[in-house]
């Protein structure tokens, strides 16, 4: 009874599996909107980005204009969502976490990104330094839309896409790791798509 039964003639949404994708992923050309809550709409005049943490010598804060004046880079990356879709060659623009973190002195080993809407995600510091993570505010040449995380989101393409949290507002630098919104609810702490780390224990 609990064995699923194949449904005659049902094919499901088109799923093309490609050799160059992480295991269990399929290619999509859309950009599915995923979120488990309302879309926050923060005015740019009220937006800021902060870096805080107990080991910080001096917390740091940028207004939107100050953030815009930071050195910017263009990133081309493949993104992999834990719900199994992947999208290749997406283009983003923003500020590297290297650039942001170079402006604070600390002794932390983990970053917790916090966001509007109550989300958070955690990453080891060595996974976001060395040109591996960015705060992006532009997608395919246009300002990042609110549904996709605008004004700014994290971009950590070598991890499942939930770690690229939308609506990011700051980083907490921490001595201890602290699971984020999804990591505390059964999703894998590291979320490496190439090792198919979807859920805890994977």
């Amino acid at each position: 009874m609990s064995q699923p039964m194949v449904s005659r003639g049902f094919r499901g949404r088109q799923r093309s599996v490609e050799a160059n994708l992480p295991p269990g992923q399929y290619l999509t050309n859309d950009f599915p909107v995923l979120s488990a809550g309302p879309t926050p709409r923060t005015q740019l005049a009220k937006w800021d980005f902060t870096i805080v943490g107990t080991t910080l010598v001096q917390p740091k804060r940028w207004t939107w204009d100050e953030f815009q004046a930071l050195p910017r880079v263009t990133i081309q990356a493949d993104i992999h969502c834990v719900t199994r879709w992947s999208k290749l060659g997406t283009r983003w623009e923003g500020v590297a976490l290297d650039t942001l973190l170079a402006r604070v002195q600390h002794q932390a080993r983990f970053v917790i990104a916090y966001c509007d809407g109550g989300y958070s995600t955690n990453l080891p510091l060595n996974e976001v330094l060395g040109g591996k993570a960015w705060v992006v505010d532009s997608y395919e040449g246009a300002p990042l839309a609110p549904e996709h995380g605008g004004p700014a989101r994290l971009l950590v393409p070598h991890r499942y896409f939930w770690k690229s949290t939308k609506w990011v507002r700051g980083l907490e630098l921490s001595v201890d790791d602290r699971p984020g919104f999804w990591e505390s609810l059964g999703y894998h702490n590291d979320g490496d798509p190439w090792r198919e780390q979807r859920y805890q224990g994977d």
Binding site: A36, G186, Y187, G201
Partner: peptide, 16 residues
């Protein structure tokens, strides 16, 4: 107030 009251994830083997 939109606060999350109940969150459920179904992983391969468990409910969280």
């Amino acid at each position: 107030c939109e606060q999350p009251l109940v969150r459920v994830v179904r992983t391969s083997n468990d409910y969280w």
